[in-house]
């Protein structure tokens, strides 16, 4: 019968914690984005016009999304570690993994 305690003694694959970390990063990143976009858009008013567009549009719809898209390049490359997807180390580069 199963004598090992499940959970506590289970030898977990290290790549799983990488995956969990990636999940947390993405949700935090997106939550900050939503918070800033909504915060600025609802608080800033229509006037003054910036380059002909209402202030809240310039900041909430254009400026913040652009900043976050640029930030995403760095976050994805720096904070998500490379891990092999196959279990055999020799074909960790993927190609014809079968």
């Amino acid at each position: 019968m199963a004598k090992k305690k499940k959970g506590s003694n289970f030898p977990e694959d290290a790549r799983f914690s990488t995956a969990k970390k990636a999940f947390v990063i993405s949700w935090i990143f997106y939550s900050i984005y939503v918070l800033l976009v909504m915060g600025f858009s609802y608080i800033l008013g229509i006037k003054p016009l910036v380059l002909g567009l209402p202030l809240w549009i310039m900041v909430g719809c254009i400026l913040i999304p652009v900043i976050f898209v640029v930030a995403l390049v760095f976050i994805a490359e720096k904070f998500i570690p490379d891990v092999p997807l196959t279990d055999k180390p020799e074909d960790s580069h993927g190609n014809k993994a079968q």
């Binding site: 990143f29 976009v37 279990d87």
Partner: peptide
Amino acid sequence: VLINNFQIFINFLLLAPIGIIVGIVARR
């Protein structure tokens, strides 16, 4: 425009939460 901009990061929110696990398990 404000509401549609919420969809910009769909790739991130798909691949980061489940991409790695699905990638490993799908091969297994």
